[in-house]
Amino acid sequence: MLGAVGPACLYVVILLVLPFIYLVYLSLQEGGHGADQTAALSLANYVEIFTSRIYLESLWGTLQLGVAVTALTLLIGYPVAYYIAQSGSRFAMFTMAVIILPLFVSVVVRSFGWMILLGRQGNVNRMLMGLGFTDKPLQLLYTPGAVTVGLVHILAPLMILPIASVLRGLDPALREAASSLGASRAKVFWTVTLPLSLPGVAAGCVLVLAHVIAAFVLPALIGSDRVKLMATMIYQQVMTANNLPLGAALAVVMVVATFALLALAGFIARRHRV
């Protein structure tokens, strides 16, 4: 047993646990230009994070964006996943391919695609002007809305695939039994299919939320400085302000928040396991 698990444990310890321990150690130091590197360890960085309006706004903004993107991907993704899982048609397979193929294209390239679509001379503005909704181009790019739309587009597959996988694994006899006992299609969905699909929903939500919390590239390309996210704050401290300890502290807060959400999702999944 140890022989089978040992290498995997070693891999996780060396590549995840030890670096995280070092990250925590770094976060307890003082940093920045001219900082005294021999100073004793302290919680000063954490105090700064939780007493600074900017970092609290970033935390709150990141969580807000995470919830919004997760909710939107769930709203859009669940029907698509249901269709893929329940329909036996060839079009369902084609839909699956359409969902998976963009995963092979980098986030940067897809972000540039959104820059073309949402630009002042882009397709969306041209359509709006053509339909008479506006007489001059709207500022769609470099806004919080653009970031939300872009993240939903990029992360939708991560919501659709787990849900489709769980739905495909459901025993059709359960739905048939409910129908045969007089339940309508809607009632079968709400009382049988949806509860049984919750582990897939939880998995999809965790994946999407974790990616949004760590999102950096797309917000940098099509967002604006006014959209402050945790990943951006970390980049600023490490790469610009040369304050590695504060950057490390922000990273620790981000990791802890992500693991807390994972724990919550795990709790929900366990409660609904059949």
Binding site: H33, S52, I54, D225, Q236, Q237, T240, A241
Partner: peptide, 14 residues
């Protein structure tokens, strides 16, 4: 740089 970044986030990027 550290103080400028903080000030930028408070005064400009908000």
């Amino acid at each position: 740089m550290g103080s400028w970044v903080k000030r930028w986030n408070q005064e400009i990027a908000s």
